[in-house]
Structures are given as C-alpha cells and as structure tokens.
Design a protein around this nucleic acid. Sequence first.
DNA 1: TTGACCGGTAGGAAATATCCTACCTATTGT
DNA 2: ACAATAGGTAGGATATTTCCTACCGGTCAA
Lengths: 103, 103
Amino acid sequence: MDVFAALASPTRREVLRLLRERGEQPVQLLADHFAMRRPSLSEHLRVLKDAGLVTERPAGRQRLYSLRPEPLREVADWLTPYERFWRERMAGLREVLDGLPDD
Amino acid sequence: MDVFAALASPTRREVLRLLRERGEQPVQLLADHFAMRRPSLSEHLRVLKDAGLVTERPAGRQRLYSLRPEPLREVADWLTPYERFWRERMAGLREVLDGLPDD
DNA sequence: TTGACCGGTAGGAAATATCCTACCTATTGT
DNA sequence: ACAATAGGTAGGATATTTCCTACCGGTCAA
C-alpha cells in the first residue's frame, strides 16, 4: 500500500530491477541473487505485492512474479514539483561554470 | 545518506513540501504543522539533512532549514528505466479503451 | 545580567523491520 | 503412493524507527 516505504529497501529495489531486466521470474531464481534465505525474500515480495509493485501468478508448483510499474507513477508525480528546483539550481551552476576562464 | 529511506516517512515528505512551498523555515514554524513534539521533528530533520535533502543555517537563536533538491535526482534517475514500462501499459490500456463502443 | 526563547541531545518505551530456523501445503515425477 | 521440489507461514532474535519527557547550551531583550 505504501510505495515509498516499499522502495526504501535496497533489496526490494533490486528485486524490481531483476524483474524489469528479466521479466517474470519464479521465487527461487530471484532468491539466488541475494545473500538471504528464501523466507526473507518472500517477505520482501509480500511488501512489494502489498504496494502493488509486483503481481504473482501460480504456475505449477512455482509462483511467477512480474513487475507492475503503475504505482511508480505516484513517485514520479510526487517528484514533479521538485524538478524545477533542481533545474534552476543546475542552471545556476551552469552559469557559474560558464563564467569561469577556460583552463 | 539514503534518499529512498528518507522519503519513506510521510512526515519527512511533508517537511519537504513545506520547504518547497514556503522556502526557508525555522524549526518552530515547521513543527507547528505536525501533531508531534519538537524533538521528534528535529530527528526527522536530521534524517533529511543526512540524506542531503535539506540544509541548515543558523540565524540568531533560530536555525533556518531549506530544501536541497539535488538528491531527488537520484530518485528520478532510478525511475527512468521504469518509465517505458508504464507508458507501454498505459498505451495498451488506451487501445483497450479506444476499442470499447461509445456509451 | 538574567530570564525567556530556540532548538538540539540523552535516554527510554513501544512499534516495526529484517533476518533466521523450523515447519506446512501443494505440485510434480517416478 | 511417495519422495522431491517450490514456496509460503509461524515464531523468535535483534536492530532500527519513531515517538516521548527531561535537560542542556546558545542567543536575545529587558
């Protein structure tokens, strides 16, 4: 339910990256890439699922997880009003740099 | 140091919003908008400062905090590779909607 | 100089997060 | 039917977060 909290964990961000790069994955394949036992990864997957960032689909005895990027829009939307701030500051920095003599 | 973790708290996101909308603010003015004692807000401010999201400047007996949006670029950059995913999905949804009969 | 004010730190309580091992169910292959 | 496999749940240890009250130092104003 809370996208920002779900993204706070490096492990969970890494899970999202794996799903983005590889597409749908069973738990075991994901778990292979972490120095962590499977039940711990299961908990991370549950947090991601509660946040709507992944979906799960049974396939035989496996469960295939895939990326569901929609909730990331909330983050992108949240960032929007800050963009002009860092653009202005980057522009200011650019001016300062342009004002320096060539080396 | 960890921008994503700093953004996980609704209180801290609200602090950033206040600083964005009002500019530089002393602690007391910020604290007035939360149902929380001042020392707790001080801790949130420290987390934001450690993440580089605010700067602090002494002014008499006050300390003025202001927004420092640069670290948010890290978040925006992290989001970038996911953008095409939700765009594709939105496009797909659009097609479905377009295919529906007018009501 | 002294009292009021601003805001940080100390230390503790309670809740939550993050890991583990042990165990359970469901599915598959022999 | 049975052993092996996939993956979730239970419950516990520990660490971290988030709040509080009490207190402290620095600054300003009378």
